[in-house]
Design a protein around this nucleic acid. Structure first.
Lengths: 244, 244
DNA sequence: GCTCCATTTTGGACTAGACCAGATTGACGA
DNA sequence: TCGTCAATCTGGTCTAGTCCAAAATGGAGC
């Protein structure tokens, strides 16, 4: 898009371009594993440190990703995500020709953290229903979510099948539909717990999306703390209509 | 927020925590420069490579940032940014008690790129008014923007003072106000041109925000390609009201 | 065919340097 | 006082390894 730098790009740049080109040509399929670091460093006739520097840059660009102690893989295309849309994860992913999956890690009633109390506008030390889940796209863990529900609106929810979409549960069991939404997006590094769930290295680049959801009566019903692998999504917000 | 890992965190982790703690305590002021890498590596009794690994992690977390060949600095607090709001950059920054500044790099009539044509819904090879600017907060370059305006709506704009807010120019000179907005947020690595303008290293983590703006008559008037230093902002979207 | 265990492979972390080029700085002269 | 230039400092890049622990693998035994 701009003029090419005339000066040499160095070994790291060479490796980066070579791998990027191979990926672009489709020679390395999405989610395919790259050769071992040692093998690649031989291939490019360099040290592992230099090679890893190049891999890190490709990771930052979102072309490849790493699974902790498991190796490097080619990033599939990003999924478009509109936090304002009321469709649930499965519908959104399937609409884009991909295969979603959800795994429940924990579901329990706990004292809310200070942050969550503030988001839900609850008094200090309130209890909330906390649900932790990992979401996959085409088998790859891309999203770690912590849902925090105001228990007043969802009696007996912990007895239900939480593998189902929460959106469906809300509507089917409680007659609650999503209304207004507020959300915040912050680029961060993955903390240990989220990293573990995503099979990523702690400190990996990620996108934190915090949502506060209201129902059709404008009551705050829950908040989600989402942690996305940074190469997995493209947030796309289209406001249907805007009133003055 | 979760249980601490019991196993040793290693040298990198130790350095990370030590620096994070010093920054948290305010011993290193925002935008203050860290000691030279060699000095820090002596201080922590390790090699520069290991030290740089720790600095990179802190960079990923958004605690520190780097200026190309100039050193490492402490990141100031993030600025909240609502891409749906119609306030301009200066107003937004000042409202948060910070000092904004804008610099115009280029302003000219050029053939639009394919991407820009698509965003503006213009036929191929259309000309657009391209304005490239760098925005600062408290002296630090945080945003590189490329505005692309449909020239049909802005005759003679290139003769005007472009240091002023575009929002003001639109309203004052052309009677055009912002209406509906669509935007996309993607975590990327900085390309060479944006990196240069932001005094960052090419490949640094960044947030790309692409906006397509319409006026009060719902005509597409321009699109912005924004590149933010990833530690500088927190995107915060509050939808005022939502119609079905 | 399946489980379990030992071996091998692989990524994670770290050491101890070197060389280069851009940025900073301070001394010198106009 | 100010601008120029040279010395110095500093980050950017790279070499050539080592040690460790987790993951993958493949074979033995049931």
């Amino acid at each position: 898009m701009s003029d090419a730098p005339s000066r040499s790009i160095g070994a790291v740049g060479t490796i980066r371009q070579a791998l990027a080109e191979q990926i672009g040509q489709g020679l390395l399929p999405p989610n395919g594993k790259l050769p071992a670091e040692r093998r690649l460093s031989e291939l490019f006739d360099t040290t592992r440190i230099t090679l890893r520097e190049a891999l890190s840059q490709l990771e930052a660009e979102g072309l490849i990703y790493r699974e902790e102690r498991r190796g490097w893989f080619v990033s599939p295309a990003r999924v478009r995500y509109n936090p304002l849309a009321r469709t649930h994860f499965h519908a959104m992913v399937e609409a884009q020709g991909r295969t979603p999956a959800t795994e429940v890690l924990q579901a329990r009633l706990v004292p809310a953290s200070g942050e969550v109390c503030a988001l839900l506008a609850l008094p200090a030390l309130s209890k909330v229903i906390q649900i932790r889940r990992v979401r996959r796209i085409d088998g790859r863990q891309v999203l770690y979510v912590e849902h925090n529900l105001n228990p007043a609106y969802f009696p007996g929810l912990l007895e239900l099948d939480l593998t189902r979409s929460l959106t469906e549960l809300y509507a089917g069991e409680y007659g609650i539909r999503y209304g207004r939404v507020r959300f915040e997006i912050t680029p961060i590094a993955l903390a240990a717990d989220a990293a573990l769930a995503l099979r990523a290295a702690a400190g990996s680049p990620a996108l934190q999306i915090t949502r506060v959801n209201r129902d059709q009566l404008d009551r705050i019903i829950d908040c989600d703390l989402e942690y996305w692998r940074h190469d997995a999504i493209q947030v796309s917000v289209e406001v249907p209509e805007q009133t003055e």
